[in-house]
């Protein structure tokens, strides 16, 4: 199994964590895993909501020292 890839979107105001994730998934293979690092509180809601709508798998979300770590798998 390939290593989980980190998308370090800490301090990214534009395009921001969700946009960055959408872009990276476009060029990824089904089954690849990612962990988004975000300092934007909104990401904790936005990213899981979007994953759910589109049908990718949320593997976990936790906050550590002001940084959100959101893990997911590309499903299609």
């Amino acid at each position: 199994m390939a290593e989980r890839q980190i998308i370090d979107a800490r301090g990214s105001f534009c395009p921001g964590p969700l946009m960055e994730l959408i872009a990276r998934l476009k060029f990824a293979q089904v089954g690849e895993e990612f962990e988004v690092l975000s300092t934007d509180q909104g990401s904790a809601n936005d990213i899981p909501e979007w994953l759910n709508k589109v049908g990718h798998q949320l593997l976990g979300a936790r906050e550590e020292a002001g940084v959100w770590h959101i893990a997911l798998r590309k499903m299609k």
């Binding site: 105001f13 534009c14 395009p15 921001g16 959408i22 936005d46």
Partner: peptide, 10 residues
């Protein structure tokens, strides 16, 4: 727009 608001910059 692709994300949950009308522009990436809040």
């Amino acid at each position: 727009y692709p994300i949950g608001r009308v522009h990436s910059l809040e």
